[in-house]
Design a protein around this nucleic acid. Sequence first.
DNA 1: GCGGTGATAGAT
DNA 2: TCTATCACCGCC
Length: 204
Amino acid sequence: MRRRLRRARWLLPVGSAALWRAVRLDPLPRSFSKRSPERLARALLGQLVVHHTARVTRVGRIVETEAYLGPHDLACHSAKGRTKRTEVMFGPHGHAYVYLVYGLHLCLNVVTGQGAAVLLRALEPVEELARADGPGRLTRALGVSLRHNTHPLDTPPLFLARGKPVPARFVVRAPRVGVDYAGQWAHAPLRFLDARSAHVSVKV
DNA sequence: GCGGTGATAGAT
DNA sequence: TCTATCACCGCC
């Protein structure tokens, strides 16, 4: 407990309310992301995403993810090769891959390395969070920007925190959204949802 | 169902 | 430089 408190003080300014929140927000170690993208996508369900800005601490519970397996997965950006943009996915696990799609929306991913990552698709609001069901709405609600690309996700201001794992009976798998161009990979059931949540982006 | 919007990657 | 291509969203 002492250790948690010390960690908490490091996270947030002193103040009883902030401190209380911080105690609840136990950052996940970077090693949490050290597993296959498929396993991480599953494990992230029920965990928390925290963005601590100057004004507020925004917190959401992850209820929908997608695994992007690496260069062999034709739906994965790294299938196009190792480029300036995809470089971060070939780096160490536990960092953020943030990119712009359709000229409008940002997407936030957790890197697992070897060109693979997990896309965060939907959050259930916990603290100071607007509707975040959908990858674009998620980044907007959290206040994530392109500058967060490559940010280590065990470090403030943007980090993953311990939530409550989703029991297997509530985990639903489905094909990923918007990857029709990826041939056989378009059908792979690499999307993971918490079936109890009303905040998933697309119904199965 | 369709238009808006801009970074990226590969072509020229 | 130019052009096609998008892990989407909101409004029609």
